[in-house]
């Protein structure tokens, strides 16, 4: 009996003692935390990806609360999170467009040739050290998955044909893959931009053609075709200026190799509401594709087969009679 009592007392006493010490310590050694930091931590995505440049979401929350990091520093959360963080900190936040990573190469096993067979470490950085990788084109995607391993959101995969492809639904635009790619092939592109040059080869056209069926050969057809000066041409390579591009997709139609990609399923077409149209011909004059028909004082009409959905007429129309809608709907 005595033994049971003794063991109960000593174990209970020790438990009580340790509990008291811990309770005391938690008060005595309490670290004052900025309540805003905790509030910010609550609204962050919590992926701890580190894309903001701080160690995890906690680090970022502390940095924002102490004024070291911008309120819109979380690329993963994008504008919705930036707005919430801004309201916690009492700062106005501008809406920013969501960016999505895109692999600027279509040189898969059907389109591009290899110069040797690679059997080394299965990593793009390692492979690119050996004569800049097995791919004939020294700019091309090696498809060994360095970006896949860098992605904290499982948004990038190696396709069956052996190049990296981003899943736009899962991509948060954190930019981890952009840093990881040894070929600098991945770029963050505004979500609204539907046209991209999927090639970064600066080789002369002849050499590009030998290595890859879908490379940019520097023919400049797209530059001539573009009515909006949205294509720069530097080092044998066309580059789209996303701030000027209106997604008319004419360059993608003209491109002889298919190096310019456009999401034709999202191509738009203009429609004139005849009840509102006053026949001023403003839209007809601004249209660069001669796709608007109709004389002065008459109702105008869009020639759907010529319209590219560039949207110039919509901006020009004084009575807002023109709307854009996705083709096919």
């Amino acid at each position: 009996m005595e033994k049971i009592l003794l063991s109960l007392l000593s174990l209970g006493g020790m438990g009580l003692l340790f509990g008291a010490v811990l309770a005391f310590a938690s008060k005595r050694f309490a670290v004052e935390k900025d309540p805003r930091a905790e509030a910010i931590r609550e609204v962050l995505p919590g992926a701890n990806c580190g894309a903001c440049g701080y160690p995890g979401c906690d680090g970022f929350a502390d940095a924002v609360a102490s004024g070291k990091a911008p309120v819109d520093g979380c690329t993963v959360g994008g504008s919705p999170v930036a707005l919430k963080v801004g309201s916690i900190m009492g700062v106005e936040v501008e809406e920013k467009e969501r960016h999505i990573a895109r692999v600027l190469c279509q040189g898969d096993c059907h389109n591009a040739v290899n110069k040797y067979e690679y059997r080394g470490i299965q990593d793009c950085v390692a492979a690119s050290m050996l004569a800049s990788g097995p791919k004939g084109c020294s700019y091309g995607c090696l498809g060994l998955g360095t970006c896949v391993r860098a992605c904290p959101f499982d948004a990038i995969h190696i396709s069956d044909r052996g190049i990296a492809v981003v899943d736009p639904d899962r991509c948060t635009g954190c930019g981890k893959c952009v840093e990881a790619c040894p070929k600098n092939l991945i770029e963050l592109i505004p979500e609204s931009s539907l046209v991209q040059v999927l090639c970064i080869s600066k080789d002369p056209g002849k050499q590009v053609r030998e290595n890859c069926k879908v490379g940019c050969i520097g023919c400049r057809l797209c530059v001539k075709a573009c009515q909006f000066e949205a294509i720069d041409f530097v080092d044998n390579l066309a580059r789209i200026r996303y701030d000027k591009c209106v997604n008319c997709m004419v360059c993608a139609e003209k491109c002889p190799t298919g190096a310019i990609y456009a999401d034709f399923s999202k191509r738009k077409v203009a429609f004139i509401d005849e009840d509102k149209c006053i026949g001023c011909t403003a839209c007809k004059r601004v249209c660069k594709f001669e796709s608007i028909d109709g004389e002065r004082k008459q109702k105008h009409r869009v020639l759907a087969d010529k319209c590219t959905g560039c949207g110039q007429c919509v901006e020009r129309c004084p009575v807002d009679a023109i709307t854009l809608s996705v083709r096919g709907n």
Partner: peptide, 17 residues
């Protein structure tokens, strides 16, 4: 019991100091 509370205690002290 001792180890668990010791570690907790040490963690708090380190966090502060």
């Amino acid at each position: 019991l001792v180890i668990a509370s010791l570690v907790q205690f040490v963690e708090m002290v380190i966090q502060k100091t």
